[in-house]
């Protein structure tokens, strides 16, 4: 067991973990932050997507010890300070960008990573960026719509 330290959603955390502990296991079992989901556990689906030092990563395919000293943001850190939904989260709710909701934490984190680098993406860029996030309910349409809305571009797909 090794003591692992990192900052998660702005809070310094520290916990013992085996070297083989995945970041997603550390978040879910070690810190009880169960908003980050394990879908496929094979790096395909993106339900486990979190930000490590501002970059989107699949937390099922990174060791917790590799995030030593890092700034990690999970879905639990996405809401506004007053507890209200962030712009992206509110857009997912407004535009019905989820059905079962299992993929949603990863979708929101992926959308946030995209909009940080590219605040006004085209619809094609949104779809391309979501390559590594799989949703089996929605057909992606309303997810894309929500992200376009969150970027202030609902007009761009208003004809749908």
């Amino acid at each position: 067991m090794t003591k692992i330290n990192m900052t998660v959603n702005g809070r310094a955390v520290s916990a013992e973990a085996e070297d083989r502990t995945l970041l997603v296991e550390f978040l879910r079992s070690g810190l009880n932050l169960t908003g980050t989901h394990v879908g496929c556990d094979t790096s395909q689906c993106g339900a486990c997507l979190v930000h490590v030092n501002g970059e989107a990563v699949k937390s099922c395919t990174m060791l917790a010890a590799e995030a030593e000293g890092a700034e990690v943001t999970t879905i639990e850190g996405m809401a506004n300070a007053d507890g209200s939904l962030s712009t992206i989260q509110a857009a997912f709710q407004e535009h019905h960008g989820l059905q079962c909701g299992f993929c949603t934490p990863g979708m929101v984190m992926s959308a946030a990573a995209l909009l940080k680098d590219n605040p006004k993406p085209s619809e094609a860029e949104v779809r391309d960026y979501l390559e590594g996030n799989i949703c089996r309910c929605t057909g992606y349409h309303n997810i894309v719509k929500a992200i376009m809305a969150a970027s202030g571009q609902l007009d761009a797909i208003a004809a749908e």
Partner: peptide, 9 residues
Amino acid sequence: IGDPAVRNR
């Protein structure tokens, strides 16, 4: 290659 999250690692 892969997807954005894979490309970050």
